[in-house]
Design a protein around this nucleic acid. Structure first.
Lengths: 140, 140
DNA sequence: GAAAGTTGATATCATTTAGTATCAACTTTG
DNA sequence: CAAAGTTGATACTAAATGATATCAACTTTC
């Protein structure tokens, strides 16, 4: 499931989209593929699941990319990774609301040792209702 | 601030937009103006503040209307109005994720006596970072 | 009671946006 | 080492989206 096994052209073929589209989703911060040391992208089955979710949100639900990014920026990562008050006060994400946390430089907090690609926060958007489900889980 | 005092044409003039645009925002579920018994709309200063926020989100942040609605659908109303497990299990909003709670029929729960227009949930979107601020308030 | 304004609807328009095609330089693969 | 594939960039296109204009029926206002 998490094994990075598809090259970008294979992934694109499997999803029925162009290679460029996959790179665009990445540039827009919607997906983080695995990268080999040579910078070549590789996609796992979970990645493809995520792409499917992105496509559904764009094509069926008619939400544009900026909109998706804004939704992702609402994921309460601070409550998920349980970062300290100290961390929060230095975190650009905690105060901002336009970009998801993984698009932001976070070297000096609890996230510095985490890989965003495998982080629970990033993966909250694996399937399409999952962000709200995550919130239900976190809130009383 | 909350007094409904502007007719739709006055409100439109104050915001520099057309009357139709205000009605569109309403149809799309982004705003709930006061309505006289004759069905005529009236806008308060707080309403205009909200319209300003909507316009900024559409024109500057480039998020489309569906996107805004999806963001609004993430407001964790259940934690704000503290509705019961019973209420939640019957609430179409609690399980859905495409429409804000005030676009949904809620006659048989704690919201039946509330007016959405003045509800804290609806007003979480008064200014533009306020939804995330609300979440910080609710989460540990 | 007449003029001005409002409502909801439809048709239309200008702009934006997601996505494709094409390109040269670089990397992988067999 | 040569063919196939990848990377990042730019130019372009078809479709969708926010917004305006126009309409007849109805209300408000003076």
């Amino acid at each position: 499931m998490d094994e990075p096994k598809y090259t970008i052209s294979n992934a694109a073929k499997l999803m029925g989209i162009s290679v460029h589209t996959l790179r665009m989703y990445e540039r827009e911060g919607l997906i983080i593929p695995f990268k080999k040391s040579s910078n070549q992208r590789l996609y796992s089955d979970r990645d493809l699941e995520r792409v499917k979710c992105i496509r559904k949100t764009i094509n069926d639900d008619k939400i544009n990319i900026e909109g998706i990014r804004r939704v992702l920026a609402l994921i309460p990562c601070w409550a998920i990774v349980k970062c300290s008050a100290e961390d929060r006060s230095h975190c650009e994400f905690f105060s901002g609301y336009t970009k998801p946390c993984w698009m932001i430089n976070h070297k000096k907090n609890v996230c510095k040792d985490r890989e965003c690609r495998t982080c629970e926060v990033y993966q909250s958007f694996g399937s399409c209702s999952s962000i709200k489900d995550k919130m239900k889980e976190l809130l009383p």
